[in-house]
Amino acid sequence: MTPVEHLELPLLHGTRARVSRRSARQGAIADAVVTAGTIRIDELAARFDISTMTAHRDLDELERRGLLRKSRGIATVTSTALVESSDLYRAGRELAEKEAIAMSALEFIHPGQAIFLDDSTTSLHLVPHLAAKRPLTVITNSLTIMNALRSAGGITVIGLGGEFHNWCSAYMGRATTDAIAAHRADTVVMSTSAIIDDIAFHQTPKTIDVKRAMFDAALTRILLADHTKFEKRALHAMLPLAAFDAVIVDEGTDRRHIGHLREAGTRVIVAHQRSPLR
């Protein structure tokens, strides 16, 4: 079972499995549309061994989230950057690496603390392990994390409202950053879309606004970045890596990147996978 499956609301086992399979399939369909740019719906149905009706339902959900368009039997990507930034797309990628990184980040969290968690899928991997650090206060803009922790004993959840963005299942905007500014946390744990020239980048300014606000309102700042972040591009600069108290990467990260960052004064922690995900 993946960490994401652990985070789903209490459901019957069969229902939970179906929800997980559907979510994974929709992520794979989004990936296929991104790769192709435009693809026939009947081709998607054949590729994923599903009925045309099921393919339409999945595409309707992806279209509702603003990730693609349906027209005359064809699915077309709206924005590659938006799809790649969506929680649905990101949730199924680098699972073992994200789990290892999250376990390393857990060492920076201590009972009694208040922590910010952003809406990244890497931060999401922390959530199943937070019970070991109770009591805690978790402040987040992620609806997924709010739902996952709503019945967790010993963990107080402060949900940051604002403008809801379906593509990432999170709140952003001025109301969100104002709410963040009204709090002070011990630690913030966040991720990034890309690392370019020793700077963390993101695709959307609203995402950066929220993460910067969390950064400014926390005493200790932890950045999570699996090896793929060093291979990607994004449009908007967020913060230099040297500004964080620690940058946690996985063991697949190129040693040249690690060495360069350490020489520049950045504290880099390499998270090692403890055991294969089941």
Rank of each mutant, 00 (worst) to 15 (best):
T2P: 14
P3Q: 07
V4Q: 10
E5T: 15
L7F: 05
L9E: 08
L9M: 14
P10K: 05
P10E: 09
L12D: 13
H13M: 14
R16V: 08
R18Q: 08
R18G: 07
V19M: 05
R22L: 15
A24W: 10
R25F: 07
D31N: 07
V34R: 08
A36N: 10
G37Q: 09
G37Y: 09
G37S: 07
T38R: 12
I41K: 09
I41Q: 07
I41V: 12
E43S: 11
R47W: 03
I50E: 02
I50N: 01
M53N: 08
T54E: 06
T54R: 05
A55E: 00
A55S: 01
A55Q: 00
L59A: 00
E61F: 06
E63V: 00
L68V: 01
L68K: 00
L68Q: 02
G73M: 01
G73T: 01
A75V: 10
V77L: 08
T80Y: 11
L82D: 12
S86V: 11
D87K: 12
R90H: 05
L95F: 10
L95K: 12
A100V: 02
A102D: 02
A102M: 02
L106T: 01
F108Y: 06
H110D: 02
P111I: 00
G112A: 00
I115D: 02
F116D: 00
D119N: 04
D119R: 04
S120H: 00
L124C: 05
L124G: 06
H125W: 13
L126G: 01
L130E: 05
L130N: 02
L130H: 04
K133E: 03
L136V: 03
T137Y: 05
V138R: 03
I139V: 06
I139Q: 04
T140I: 05
T140E: 03
I145K: 03
N147Q: 03
A152P: 00
G153A: 02
V157I: 00
I158E: 01
G159A: 03
F164I: 01
N166H: 12
W167Y: 10
A170L: 05
Y171S: 07
Y171E: 03
Y171A: 08
A181W: 09
A182N: 13
R184P: 10
R184A: 14
I195W: 09
I196C: 10
D197H: 15
I199H: 15
F201L: 09
P205F: 06
T207S: 13
V210P: 12
V210L: 13
M214C: 09
M214F: 11
A217C: 10
A217D: 10
L219V: 15
T220M: 11
R221K: 09
L224I: 08
H227E: 07
T228K: 03
F230K: 02
K232C: 04
R233S: 09
A234H: 02
L235D: 06
L235E: 08
M238H: 02
D245A: 04
A246Q: 04
I248D: 04
E251I: 07
E251N: 13
R255S: 12
R255G: 11
H260Y: 10
L261K: 08
E263F: 11
A264C: 13
A264K: 13
G265R: 06
G265A: 12
V268E: 07
H272A: 15
R274Q: 14
S275I: 15
L277K: 13
